[in-house]
Simulated assay, not measured.
Amino acid sequence: MDPLHLAVLDDEPDITRLLASYLAGHGFRVTQLHAGRDLMALMATDPPALVLLDLGLPGEDGLTIARQLRERWHCGLVIVTGRGDAVDKVVGLEVGADDYVTKPFDLRELVARIKAVLRRIEPAAPPPASAPTRWRFAGWTLDEAARELRAPDGQPATLTSGEFDLLCVLVRHAGRVLSRDFLLEHTRGRAAGPFDRTIDVQVGRLRRKIERDADHPELIKSVRSAGYVLVPAVEPA
């Protein structure tokens, strides 16, 4: 099996060399990049399974690059940056990053996060024939096998991979209050860290996309100090 291809985009060659060497030691093929245009060219010719993206690129907006990746390609995206402010992290997750790591970082932890994202985005094994893969709730139709969500009017909804995975977990456990740790473990394969708002950000984005029907103003309910619950009844489609 060919090694998985990763791309590292950072304006500091020392960092890209360090990451390339360390990740190669863990069985990855790594392309080092130092400009957004080089990443876009790579995506068109040899797309990586996951991109490690620095936001602080001279003369470039790292968040714009992140948005372009999400709009045009399906790949893992881990932001690795010196911007540790909570607002920057929220914005990074808002544009669709799968994870957000601040510098300085522990190399072993970074590899663990990369592997967790790759596990989450890889195609799932086909479920048993008896297991339902299509669900209906509040007029919406969720097709897990096709990774598609359709609105009550039949139009497809645009969700990021993280939002879709989160909705699948909520649908499978409809009516149950799910903790943030449970949701993070079942969507990203890791436990929540101190002040980790990843799930809160994704729930907020998901709400804005599916709670637009006036007949169902609150599909995902917050339960204080407990987590989130999908409120409407769910049935196999």
Rank of each mutant, 00 (worst) to 15 (best):
T102Y: 06
I199R: 03
V91P: 00
V201M: 02
D10S: 07
T160K: 00
R176M: 12
W135C: 07
P3S: 11
L55G: 02
D200I: 09
G25C: 09
L57D: 02
L93I: 04
R190N: 07
L69E: 03
G84A: 09
G139V: 09
T160P: 02
L170W: 02
V234L: 00
R197W: 12
T141R: 09
E211G: 07
L77W: 09
A86E: 15
Q32I: 10
T64G: 04
R172C: 01
Q32M: 14
A145Y: 00
A237P: 02
Q155C: 02
R83A: 12
V87Y: 14
R188Y: 11
K89E: 15
T198V: 02
T64V: 15
V30Q: 10
G27F: 12
S161P: 13
H74L: 14
L184N: 14
P128Y: 00
T160L: 11
V229R: 09
G193L: 09
D196E: 06
L170A: 08
T141D: 10
L118M: 11
L110R: 05
A157V: 02
K209S: 01
S130G: 15
G84D: 05
P194Y: 06
P194A: 14
V231G: 06
M1Y: 02
P13E: 08
G154L: 03
G92E: 03
L6I: 13
P232S: 05
V8Y: 05
P236W: 00
D10V: 10
G62H: 04
A151E: 11
G139N: 07
G84C: 02
G139F: 03
A237F: 10
T198L: 03
T187L: 01
G193V: 06
G25K: 09
G56E: 09
D61N: 13
L184G: 06
G59T: 05
P126M: 06
A174D: 00
L206A: 02
E211P: 03
H5A: 13
A97G: 07
S179H: 03
D46E: 15
D106C: 13
D200W: 08
A20P: 03
V8K: 07
A7V: 06
A86G: 12
A97C: 07
L178E: 08
A151F: 14
L4I: 14
P123Q: 02
Q202C: 09
T133G: 05
R208P: 00
L53P: 08
G36S: 11
A129G: 00
L52Y: 06
L53D: 06
